[in-house]
């Protein structure tokens, strides 16, 4: 296989140049370039309607790009779609399992389609259900699964034959924290086996936890790209929230924090709390120490990660728009 190499001579899982997809006049994807090394996790971060799913669908051969070209695991996306399909797998945003069938039937279906003979298909399906903690739900209709179980089954279906490249479209949207952690563990286990993962997410936290590199996408364009560390450095390391025991000390606290952090301190609507954008976490402990030294009692404080909104605010100068209408119109 003649794989493209990146700057460090790593073979690339995806190399894309100038991908464009138009829906009518709307440019859903507007010139996206990618170079994703094999064996890594790559995150698309952006609000609804930014073009994440559309880009993913093009890379998975489900949509034809209007412009641009791409190589997936060394295969040309446009000229060899079938070769591309043999090395990728897609877990879509809306569960791509069959709700009417039960868990094991869903996996047997995919196993048969991948060429497993009847008996080994059953064996493989049972093995994956077990590995994904779904063995007790094998005979239950997927309709009755929880969101997290459905997601796990969906990913298990993608793993019948482990793909070289897995597309995960918003794998944890709408899941509770425990299910979300389970999905994260699955992705981590997967990467150790050599599969490259491309995932889309609306949560900076998720991209931070999983992705080696992140592309921030807005209006069909990549507006920032880098490791999560690089992105955070560009937006500051987060927000310090402080709640005071005595609201009457807030004015003094605001002055002290502002001196210690050398930044603007905002007063919240709650009369006892204030918050400030941080450039580094060290400053936060100094600021809290300053409050303590002045006998201002803090009932609660937290160091929040910058949210997607803050990333967008910094990168684009405007908050992330949730273009749900556009997203709805194209599905």
């Amino acid at each position: 296989m003649n794989n493209d190499l990146d700057a460090h001579n790593q073979p690339l899982a995806i190399k894309a140049t100038g991908l464009v997809k138009r829906f009518g006049k709307h440019r859903a994807v507007d010139g996206i370039d990618l170079a994703i090394p094999q064996g890594t996790v790559y995150g698309f971060l952006g609000p609804n309607g930014a073009g994440k799913t559309t880009t993913m669908k093009m890379l998975a051969t489900l949509l034809k790009p209007d412009e641009g070209s791409a190589q997936i695991m060394g295969h040309d996306l446009l000229k060899e779609p079938d070769a591309v399909r043999t090395c990728v797998s897609l877990t879509g945003q809306f569960a791509s399992v069959d709700e009417d069938l039960n868990g094991i039937e869903n996996l047997i279906l995919i196993a048969r389609l991948m060429g497993y003979p009847s008996r080994s298909a059953k064996k493989r399906a049972a093995e994956l259900l077990d590995a994904f903690g779904l063995q007790d739900a094998a005979k239950r209709q997927v309709k009755k699964y929880s969101g997290g179980m459905r997601r796990r089954l969906d990913i298990a279906a993608s793993m019948i034959v482990r793909p070289d490249l897995l597309f995960l479209d918003e794998p944890t949207t709408g899941l509770d924290p425990r299910s979300r952690n389970q999905i994260w563990d699955i992705v981590r286990a997967l990467v150790t086996t050599g599969t490259t993962v491309l995932l889309t997410t609306q949560y900076l936290d998720e991209a931070d936890q999983l992705a080696d590199r992140i592309a921030v996408i807005d209006h069909g364009k990549i507006i920032a790209e880098g490791t999560s560390g690089e992105l955070k450095a560009s937006v500051g390391s987060g927000v310090l929230h402080v709640r005071l025991l005595d609201p009457s000390t807030r004015a003094q606290a605001q002055q002290l924090l502002s001196d210690a952090l050398k930044t603007k301190v905002r007063l919240s609507s709650d009369s006892a709390t204030l918050s400030a954008q941080l450039t580094g976490t060290k400053a936060a402990s100094k600021a809290l120490a300053a409050l303590d030294a002045n006998q201002i009692d803090v009932s609660e404080f937290s160091l929040g990660q910058p949210s997607l909104d803050e990333v967008f605010l910094t990168l684009t100068g405007k908050p992330a728009e949730n273009e749900t209408q556009k997203e709805g119109a194209k599905s």
Partner: peptide, 30 residues
């Protein structure tokens, strides 16, 4: 758990690609 999952994910022999008749019949079964 992680070990079990990795074991299930680590490459098995990929079965030969089924023909169009076999896959159509599988969809009929569904």
């Amino acid at each position: 758990n992680m070990a079990k999952m990795r074991a299930a994910l680590v490459e098995q022999v990929r079965p030969p690609r089924p023909n169009g008749i076999a896959t159509s019949l599988t969809f009929a079964w569904r």
